[in-house]
Design a binder for these strands. Structure first.
Lengths: 217, 217
DNA sequence: TGAAATTTTTAGATTAGTCTAAATTATTTA
DNA sequence: TAAATAATTTAGACTAATCTAAAAATTTCA
């Protein structure tokens, strides 16, 4: 099996490459709060284990087996988040760091039984899809609120920022996963957005609109 | 906080000293599958942190704060074992190694909510008492089957050996926690024991009788 | 296109935990 | 009670993961 440090590197590389395919040493270092020289050392180890494709000075990508490992970690992380929120009544802004610890318990049987116990949830509390035991998941067609047009309606289905302060702000505004909202106005000057939520008008900044995902209707 | 290795040492020292008060370097080494020299190194670290009383060549005992840490680990271990058996349908012979990993997730809040979620169980699946959040637990008055007299009746309330092979043997004999048994015969020659369980007579070896605990009626 | 800036790697050191082999202390027993 | 035996500690080395500082490669852009 892989060490804790190796798992954290694989997960970071997965998140950095899922959109643009290739990650650099510095971006990995900053996402793991470590130094570039430490990253270089680890990249060699991961390459020796055939978990990444690594060409010095050219960045890295995950191999098929590295991606499988990374998706396993992400599956565990999201299932534990779901467990913490749905079974132990944690709030969605409290579970990230805990799940970060729990995701490293590697028993496949444990995770599959946990999945069954919870009824095979499809999404974690932040709307992220949960990979199944083979690493597959539907990539939902979501759109940023900041990219929506006036009068567009949608259901909040995900958030990009998982920081407690952002999630607590959403709680205060009663913006949650599953809420149906309509974009009623977009201010040219600062790109801030006015939303209709039930009977309420809510005005959010461009930055906030940039971190909320809605499903098209 | 303490490292994983430190936690494992504290737990081992707790188990070795709970009856006889003092543990030697070699006994710690063999219970952790490591070498005496490694133990000596770690004992110095734990003594520096005031978690153990250590006098070179004289063995060790836990300090009050070391005991508190150890009981916290044991609480987590036993609660996870209960969770695995009662919620995820693992068998009692399958949970030890998994709980050994899970016990190192240190969030107090997680454990207290897990405890609440399960209804504050008093015993793990092997009958071991679960310390409360302050480290307290009732030390049940139990007796070994091997120490019982003929005609004595009791309820199986614990097992000393937690190995899968022993627990699977008990399953096969339908001897489980909660079963009421009566000692009907004790063979002088080999100290083996005959039990009455419901309508069934069961003959067990001295070794087995030495690992089953019953509560006096 | 070639110097400046940026990114990445290398070299050498550090820490936690472990090991083997040798030395030391404690215990047993003749 | 002194030698033999057993238990424990010390000395020195190793691995994984990290760091700082310096060197090398790549990219940028004037």
């Amino acid at each position: 099996m892989n060490t804790l440090a190796e798992e954290n590197y694989l997960k970071a590389i997965y998140h950095l490459t899922v959109n643009d395919g290739n990650a650099g040493t510095n971006s990995i270092a900053s996402s793991l709060n470590t130094k570039a020289s430490s990253v270089t050392d680890m990249l060699k180890k991961l390459a020796d284990k055939a978990l990444i494709n690594y060409i010095p000075y050219q960045g890295v990508s995950l191999t098929a087996s590295g991606q499988k490992v990374a998706l396993g970690i992400i599956r565990r992380h999201r299932l534990w988040e779901y467990f913490l929120v749905e079974k132990l009544n944690f709030k969605w802004d409290e579970v990230h760091d805990l799940a970060e610890e729990m995701e490293h318990i590697s028993s496949q049987q444990l995770i599959d039984r946990l999945d069954q116990f919870m009824g095979y949830p499809k999404h974690d509390p932040h709307g992220e899809p949960i990979p199944d035991c083979d690493g597959y998941f539907n990539h939902d067609e979501l759109k940023l609120v900041s990219a929506a047009a006036i009068n567009q309606t949608g259901v909040i289905s995900g958030v990009c920022d998982h920081s407690p302060s952002f999630l607590q702000y959403l709680d205060k505004q009663e913006l949650k996963i599953g809420s149906r909202i309509t974009v009623t106005d977009i201010i040219d000057y600062d790109h801030s957005v006015t939303l209709q939520l039930n009977n309420k008008k809510i005005h959010i900044s461009c930055e906030v609109a940039n971190n909320i995902l809605i499903a098209n209707e």
